[in-house]
């Protein structure tokens, strides 16, 4: 798994370097979550829409759409599309848009996101549709912690509980940083676990970089009949020493030298 996530992180940094823009910090913080999801938890056919059983797939929504390079790299490394496409990230005409786009149609991309605070409501709607159609799979939504400052997120949490959804799993990539600084300084979310519990969720807190912990909690959530929220404590920029916990790497591309240094660390 470590080999896999290192390869993914290297590609993320190469993509952002090549595009001269992107969000390395929040992408690297959720790489381990995404990797465990796609390699161990989600039932999403690699043939994508060509799969016979396509409608019964688990759904994954990257609500924090700016972490798109992480999702693209994980999908490519899992075989949903060619790794050759990765360097098209953010380039004119590419299906690897700056933020995920279901409009342009890239295998593995369920929904369009980018404007924060909307993925969870989309997930609730999808979960309702699946319940109506008696589809037994689950909807997983990955959110950023800063994103939870959007009021519509709490509308969606309320709705999920009100609809008694049993097929929705919310994962929060809690890296404690947002563009303007620490989430606690900008607009605190604490106590996040208690707030989520008060909204009717079964809340689990894990180390978002521990593969075993992630696998267990995500598989448990998949089996569970309760509305689950997983708070994954993560480090923004995880894997590259000079990016870790450094908010200046929220939305900045590494230059040639920084990329070289980062890639050496990820060997």
């Amino acid at each position: 798994m470590k080999t896999f996530t290192n390869a993914v992180r290297k590609d993320i940094l190469k993509m952002i370097h090549n595009a001269k823009s992107g969000h390395p910090g929040g992408a690297c913080s959720c790489v381990d979550i995404l990797s465990v999801l796609y390699k161990k938890v989600l039932n999403v056919p690699v043939e994508w829409a060509n799969a016979v059983d396509f409608k019964n797939r688990d759904r994954f929504i990257l609500s924090k759409g700016h972490a798109s390079p992480a999702l693209y790299a994980v999908l490519a490394h899992c075989g949903y599309f060619s790794k050759d496409l990765l360097m098209g990230f953010r380039i004119l005409g590419s299906k690897l848009q700056g933020h995920p786009s279901s409009r342009v149609g890239l295998p593995g991309i369920e929904v369009s996101t980018g404007s924060l605070g909307q993925g969870l409501s989309i997930g609730v709607g999808m979960a309702l549709a699946m319940r109506l159609d008696n589809i037994k799979s689950k909807v997983f939504v990955l959110m950023g912690d800063g994103e939870m400052q959007e009021g519509s997120v709490w509308e969606a949490l309320m709705n999920a509980n009100n609809q008694k959804l049993k097929n929705l799993v919310v994962i929060i990539d809690k890296n404690n940083l947002q563009i303007d600084g620490s989430t606690n300084d900008v607009k605190t979310l604490e106590p996040l676990d208690k707030k989520l519990e008060a909204f009717g969720f079964n809340v689990k807190t894990v180390d978002g970089h521990n593969f075993e912990e992630l696998e267990k909690v995500l598989l448990d959530a998949k089996k569970s009949n309760e509305l689950t929220a997983i708070i994954a404590n993560t480090i923004k920029g995880k894997g590259v020493s000079f990016m870790e916990n450094n908010v200046s790497w929220h939305g900045k591309a590494p230059n040639d030298e920084e990329l070289k240094k980062a890639l050496e660390e990820l060997c």
Binding site: S102, S121, I122, V124, A127, A129
Partner: peptide
């Protein structure tokens, strides 16, 4: 806001 985006999710479904 939640209604419109939940509507979108149902349409995705």
């Amino acid at each position: 806001q939640d209604m419109i985006t939940t509507a979108a999710g149902l349409a995705y479904g």
